[in-house]
Amino acid sequence: MASETKGNWWIWKVFWILLFITAFEVALGMIKPPFLVDTIFLGTKLLNHIFIILTIIKAAYIILEFMHLGHEKKSLKWTVLLPAMVLVPYLLFIILSEGVHSYLMI
């Protein structure tokens, strides 16, 4: 494993990235820029899309760096990532569109 000889600097780099993204999210959540709140895209506020994208970036750093998956063998990487990358968006698509549909039916 290559990381055995690596120092600790990369850990703190990831830490600062995660901290910065979280602080940015909290600031956005407190300020709520009207432009981002009022623009509706794909059924929800633009602000929410930004939150979701930032969350996925944070998740990627945790999985690939902290959990070291980015440095594992390619086959292991995809064994872990593919089920989630296929099933979760599928589940969300089905369930959330049904949620909107059942709202319209009340």
């Binding site: 292991l76 064994t79 989630a84 979760v88 589940l91 969300l92 369930i95 949620g99 009340i106």
Partner: peptide, 26 residues
């Protein structure tokens, strides 16, 4: 890792159902 994959799907299901109810009872 395999345990974590299954746990990922469990939590995804919870959050997806949260999203369903949130849309339904918005």
């Amino acid at each position: 890792w395999f345990f974590l994959i299954t746990d990922t799907l469990t939590f995804s299901a919870f959050l997806a159902s949260y999203g369903f109810s949130r849309f339904k009872y918005q």
